[in-house]
Design a protein around this nucleic acid. Sequence first.
DNA 1: GTGATTTGACCTAA
DNA 2: TTAGGTCAAATCAC
Length: 302
Amino acid sequence: MENQVPNVKKAMEEELIRGRDIANQLVDVLVHDKLSYYQEVEGVSNPILPFVEDLVNKVLCSFTNALLLLNSNNDVSDDVAASITLRDVSSSTSCPKLEHVEETCKSPNTLNTKNRRRGYKRKSIAPTWEKDSSMLTEDGYLWRKYGQKMTLNAKFLRSYYRCTHKNDQGCQAMKQVQRIQGDPPLFRTTYYGHHTCKTPLNPEIILEPLSPSLSSSTLLSFSFNNSITKSKQENPFLLASTKHEPVEVIPDGYTAKNELFSPEEFLLNDYEDNYSDYLRHVAMPLCTEPLEFDNVYEAFGI
DNA sequence: GTGATTTGACCTAA
DNA sequence: TTAGGTCAAATCAC
């Protein structure tokens, strides 16, 4: 028992060093293989990507294991401990499991239904950005609704969504949708965190505002062509999101490679202080007519 | 059968 | 203490 703490510290140190080394490898790969990115954009398969993903997994595993070791020794804050999930470690195929740590954390109480929320941590982070919109709009990501609540001083339910890829990719993005006005309907969408997932949607339809001051309700209005009536199987991009939300659709012609702008790319191109440039390069080519969608507001009782 | 939503209970920050 | 955020079993939809 006396030797356990030094052993844990030793293992933790090794894990952190391992993570650092792998991260360095990853940087080398990313820096020296820029061309592969363009190959990927062109649709050519990229043999380096699996290797990069493996490196990323190893980095995450190393740091997670280190945190688990700290957690098992009560040397870590509750905040950090709450962010650690055993699934994150065990789900990785390339990550050596720390069985003794897992066993330490899996007390009988955690398996008991009444105590299964021990790891629950209510978020206290500030919103990343907000937008008000007269209609529920698709933002290019897949969301899964995990709750709704009637809040004080609110006439309507607030809905809670998290990224569909929270479990499989660890994406921490969340959003809340609050109907703030009945007639005409007005919705306030508050986003928390950023997407780290590889969204299955076309990158060109991902349009997050560049800053909270840029209300997307002024620019996110898209044409709604007949293809929206196709099934999920025929066009999964269009209806793959939560059933309560309408979709924003990019005209088919907007596919030229040099016209693709994700918000990140837009920032990298120094447009962030020029909203008109953003509109010209990103929003305007996409805007035509407001879309229509049956049962769009069904969940909100409109 | 599988995945998404609903809903009541649980948990925590203020 | 309480309002708001989250969990997870039950239910629904495809």
